[in-house]
Simulated scan of single mutants.
Amino acid sequence: MSCSDDQTAPNDALDTLDDAVVAAAFRRLVRLLQHRSDAANIDLMGLAGFCRNCLGDWIAEAGDMDKEAGRAIVHGMPTAAWKNLHHTAATPEQLARMEESMAKNP
């Protein structure tokens, strides 16, 4: 799985938000994803074109850290531990939805 690059539009309204507001909303999103372990990454990828790993990768890139450190922040634990607890093998249908969804990303 690969996450899309940042493709912000000029004069994006998000850029006008206070950093504290953005941080609070982001933390709420991450905590929801930590709580909703029933929402599989493959399904998130199939619906929205991003998943927990993508968020972790974006944190790592923005914070100049390695991907595992960023992903562990989003998972709330090391990635290997999260996978042991919550990961199931993707079905061919889930993989096809993910590929179709990812093709829509910028």
Rank of each mutant, 00 (worst) to 15 (best):
T16C: 05
G76R: 06
M45V: 09
M77Y: 01
L47C: 08
K104N: 14
A80E: 15
M102L: 15
A80M: 11
A69W: 04
L29G: 01
M65E: 09
L95T: 09
W82R: 04
Q94K: 08
R36C: 04
A69E: 13
A9W: 10
M98F: 08
E99F: 08
N53F: 09
D38G: 06
L47T: 13
H86V: 03
D66Y: 05
R31M: 07
P78T: 06
C51F: 01
D19M: 09
P10S: 08
R97E: 04
D38L: 01
A25D: 09
A39G: 00
C51K: 02
R71A: 02
M77N: 06
T79R: 08
L95E: 14
L47R: 15
D43I: 13
A69V: 13
L32Q: 12
M45I: 05
A40L: 15
G56Q: 02
T79M: 01
D12A: 12
E68F: 09
D57C: 11
T79W: 12
V74R: 02
R27C: 00
A90P: 10
D18H: 14
T88Q: 12
M98Y: 03
A96I: 02
P106M: 03
C51I: 00
D43R: 14
L32E: 11
D18W: 11
H35T: 14
